[in-house]
Design a protein around this nucleic acid. Structure first.
Lengths: 195, 195
DNA sequence: TCAGATAAGTCAACATGGCTGACATAACCG
DNA sequence: CGGTTATGTCAGCCATGTTGACTTATCTGA
């Protein structure tokens, strides 16, 4: 395909030898490709372990990671609509429906018709749902707190800006508005868990 | 279950009202729970979008995210063994086998028996594999470079330390040793892609 | 007021990528 | 030679994503 047929015993940055960029331009990069690849790997490992603890807990409840995601966002942003959840998770409504129905059937989430628009089904955690959400979050919060502490003073801001900038630019306003909706939306009439 | 049956119209930090910690201790936390939960969400959104671009490319090749992970690590750490890959991905050998076989059958990866231990099958990317790996990595590297730049000077170190500390402590030595193995391992005898 | 858009739910079928269990082969090591 | 290790494989199951088609209830604007 390309003009590359030397043996594979190359020097450092073998992968780059297949590129058609001249080394002059390459040396001018703010961050070399190899260093960026390390960040990609670290992000993979970090996320791999970030999800490990809750995954183990979920198994005891007959749930999976998809349930965790739904329960988390309903718990932290109670009163959100189904369509909000679809935007957040970026999955189809059929996929969401499956796990959401199970969470409702088992009494972790309740729905309430919207007051201004009765087509909307606002989602709220039950007390049981809140307890499970906290249990799942606990090890993740410990991990995050430890990692931020280990990263040193000032890391909090840097990490936050980094993660925000990793999000697709067009999705950032929506993410901001979601995160601005604190976990204190009015509840479903105080009759939760009676169904 | 608990002694909590007030209506759900609580004040800020409703979730914490279900905890049995006194507010005195809570106020002493270095990072409040709400802030840590935001980091958890940002990590979710960041990873969600981090995987989006390569996922779209993979579809054109009839591959999935699992193939990407295998191809990435084989490409960046060529010559690793199957057991190394299993440790990295933390999946079963049957799961790995499925995607690895497809990558080998389609000519993206080649195997070579280990020289010192001939039971081992060392994995190498073919030229075709390297090209696909680079194509998949490209949008991720752009995203990472942009995010690190957006996070400001000094963020690189902070983010690196943060991500490293997010990894399970017992896995960190192994991760370090993997990342130390640069992409310049000797190739499979220079006969790649001839099978 | 009615037509079209929107929010949500449902059924069916399928693909991907995890999992367990059982078993086979080859090679290493003491 | 016997036990262990590295790898591969078959078979089946489960979780969670997909597409496509369709229904119901409700809102909104001409």
């Amino acid at each position: 395909m390309t003009d590359l047929n030397e043996p594979l015993t190359q020097g450092p940055k073998a992968a780059e030898s297949t590129r058609r960029v001249d080394d002059g331009a390459r040396r001018k990069e703010a961050l070399p490709e190899a260093k960026l690849l390390e960040f990609a790997e670290l992000l993979f490992f970090a996320y791999r372990d970030f999800t490990r603890d809750p995954d183990a807990i979920l198994k005891d409840f007959g749930f999976g990671r998809a349930h965790h995601r739904v329960l988390h966002f309903v718990n932290c942003h109670s009163g959100l609509r189904v369509v909000d959840l679809l935007d957040i998770l970026t999955i189809t409504k059929q996929s969401l429906s499956r796990v959401l129905k199970q969470l409702i059937d088992k009494g972790y989430i309740v729905q309430q018709a919207g007051s201004s628009d009765r087509r909307e089904r606002l989602l709220f955690p039950t007390e049981r749902g809140r307890m499970l959400a906290e249990r799942l979050a606990a090890p993740q919060l410990v991990r995050l707190a430890g990692a931020l502490k280990a990263a040193g003073p000032g890391a909090e801001t840097a990490v936050r800006h980094f993660l925000e900038a990793m999000i697709n630019a067009e999705d950032r306003p929506q993410v901001s508005s979601i995160m601005a909706s604190s976990p204190r939306a009015p509840g479903p009439g105080g009759k939760e868990g009676e169904g």
